[in-house]
Each structure stands twice: as C-alpha cells, then as structure tokens.
C-alpha cells in the first residue's frame, strides 16, 4: 500500500516537473512582453505596452512578419495545388513501380531542404538569378514540402471511392472538371491539413531564408528574430519576447480557425 502511494507520488511529481519544463517558457512568452525590462525569469507582468512600442519602431520587425506571410501563403498555395494534382494522378493511374517512386520522393525530399543540399541549392539559385528573391525561395521551399504533401494526400485520395469520379466521367466531365467538382470537395479536409502544415513549416523555417535572402527587407520573421541583439551583443529580451509573441500568434490563430472550420485533428493520422 505504502509502495503504491509512494509510486503515485513519484509519478505525479515527475509529471509536474515535465509540465513545468514545458509551461515555464510559454508563461515567459506570455508575461515578458508586458513586463518592463524583462529578464530570463518569469515575473508577474506590470502590463506595460512600451515593449510593443519598441518593436513597432524597429525598422524590420513588422515588415518581416509580412514577408513570412508572403512566403508561407505562397508556398502553401503552390504545395496544395501541385500536391493535389499529383496525388490524384498517382492515386488513380496504375503505374508500375508507383509506390517505390513515392517512397523515393519522400526520402529525397528530406535531402532537398536539408543541410546536405545547401551548397548546391545556393549555387543553383545564383545561376538561376533566384538569389535574394522571394519567388525563388517559395519555389525551393515548395519543392522540399511537395513529396511529403503528395504522400499524405495520396493516402487521402486512395480512401475516397472511385465511383464518384466514374459517375462524373460518364456524365462527360473532363479530368480537370472531375478534380474541381468532385475530388477537391471530397478531400478538402486533407487539403486544409496540407495547407496548415505547409504554412507552419515555412513560418518556422530559418535556414533556407537565411541562406537565400541577404536583403534584410525581404527576410522573414524567423531570420529577423535572430538579429534582435543589443549593441553589447546580448540578446535583447525586450524585443525578443515581444516579437516572439507576435510571431507565434498568427500560427496559433490559423490552427484554431482551420480546426474549427474543418474539425479535423492534428494528432495521429490525417484520415477523417
């Protein structure tokens, strides 16, 4: 009996420590922006808005959030469009070695945006005049996300019955009409998942924009965040905490909005 009680106490202590480990940074993120002269400790805020004034005065902070938005939305649109078409084709056309192709793509994708390909990617971008261009970055990010997106969407499309499409086909619908009228509405939750996933991915991506965008005015928030230092080379906690909050709010809002609209869950599989 004592052993059981002790075990329980130990268990809950462990849980509490773990919880604190993850909660304290979040608490800090919520409190520090509203505190004058924030430090690394979590304090009860004095609800000043001075930090926000400071960040508004920073020349690149707000524009960088807009840059992040452009990159994220642009990439998400490209990924959803191409992944939907490719996944549909792969799901419906019988090709020898189709599954092998998919797995190979999936493997390769982790290389494309991974560290290993950085130098060649950089050179490629220089050659194509896509260095310092948001379009170039969007293309490269899309390329990196597409294989996994195709893989996930194909799974989704495989699970929708073919007879809907066949029925539309007999009525004379063209392949593109079938995709627009029938397939897309049926897999809309899947498309939403992919879009959210792509946005979140781009939003948090530091390496690629850091590498390919040297113009400060084009850099996204993830990169600008890295430049928020005081003259003394110390992390500027006033700006960092405030900017961090502004940086995380859009993503949280997007999750809430999409999950309310489509009611799908992010944990586990993507199937309905």
């Amino acid at each position: 009996m004592t052993r059981f009680v002790l075990g329980r106490i130990g268990f809950y202590t462990l849980i509490a420590v773990l919880l604190a480990f993850f909660t304290i940074p979040l608490l800090w993120l919520a409190a520090a922006p509203f505190t004058s002269d924030p430090t690394y400790e979590v304090r009860v805020p004095d609800f000043t808005l001075d930090n926000f004034t400071a960040i508004l005065e920073h020349p690149y902070a707000l524009p960088s959030l807009l840059n992040s938005l452009v990159l994220a939305v642009g990439t998400a649109l490209l990924v959803v469009l191409f992944a939907a078409l490719a996944a549909y084709a792969l799901s419906r056309v019988r090709l020898p070695g189709r599954d092998a192709l998919l797995y190979a793509l999936l493997l390769l994708s982790s290389i494309i945006t991974g560290t290993a390909a950085m130098v060649p990617l950089f050179q490629l971008a220089v050659e194509l005049n896509l260095i310092d261009s948001q379009l170039g970055l969007i293309l490269i990010l899309s390329g990196g996300l597409l294989p996994a997106a195709i893989f996930m969407l194909k799974d989704f499309m495989d699970s929708t019955p073919k007879s809907y499409e066949e029925s539309a086909r007999v009525f004379g619908a063209s392949p593109l009409q079938i995709v627009r009228h029938v397939v897309v509405p049926l897999v809309r939750p899947g498309l939403a998942t992919i879009a959210v996933w792509a946005v979140a991915n781009v939003w948090g991506n530091f390496l690629m924009p850091y590498l390919l965008l040297s113009d400060v005015e084009k850099q996204p928030a993830a990169v600008i965040m890295y430049t928020l230092y005081t003259e003394g080379g110390q992390a500027n906690l006033t700006l960092l905490s405030t900017f961090g909050l502004l940086y995380s709010v859009p993503v949280v809002l997007m999750y809430l909005f999409v999950s309310k609209k489509y009611g799908f869950r992010f944990h586990g599989g993507i199937k309905r």
Partner: peptide
C-alpha cells in the same frame, strides 16, 4: 464515356 450518350446508375 462522356461522349457515348449514355447514363449510368452505380
């Protein structure tokens, strides 16, 4: 199928 002037119930 669409050009055959038929309709089908599945």
């Amino acid at each position: 199928p669409g050009a055959r002037d038929i309709a089908m119930v599945f």
